[in-house]
Design a protein around this nucleic acid. Structure first.
Length: 129
DNA sequence: ATGCTGACTATGT
DNA sequence: TACATAGCCAGCA
């Protein structure tokens, strides 16, 4: 597990050893967390979207790793990140986490379809709303 | 440098 | 619509 041991309020300082190329001094992980932190309540963003927003289009998979490394109880709204098909995507031996994610989203008003998917057309976070 | 791994994706059947 | 495959990436051994 990559060393993601910070939470939103710790984003001010670099955490990793690798500076990062987009914003020197700030790691990719930190940027990802900062992006996720601004996803509005009741809306969701895809892993790929977060990656692009963090300045690394194509690094969707890496975003997943970052989410997986967030400490429990983190104030980062990790539950608002879903896959490109609009479904909760958490496989690694944590079926409970998946339910947890769905519960948190529904509590924010995000509706799931019969196929266990979210209608991205209406819930996807778009910059500006 | 090299080679994994994994809360991903786009594409082709 | 549901799988299978093949790229793609950052972080770490």
């Amino acid at each position: 597990m990559p060393g993601i041991t910070f939470t939103a309020h710790e984003l001010d300082r670099p955490t990793g050893k690798r500076p990062g190329k987009v914003m020197p001094g700030i790691t990719f992980s930190a940027r990802v967390v900062s992006v996720v932190a601004r996803i509005p309540r009741g809306r969701v963003a895809t892993y790929g979207q977060v990656a692009a927003e963090a300045g690394r289009a194509g690094a969707a998979r890496a975003v997943g790793v970052v989410m997986a490394c967030l400490p429990d109880g983190s104030d980062v709204p990790w539950h608002r990140v879903v896959n490109a098909r609009g479904e909760v995507s958490i496989r690694p031996g944590r079926p409970s986490a998946g339910e947890e994610q769905r519960r948190l989203l529904e509590r924010e008003g995000v509706r799931f379809g019969s196929g266990g998917r979210i209608d991205l057309a209406s819930h996807l976070w778009k910059r500006g709303r």
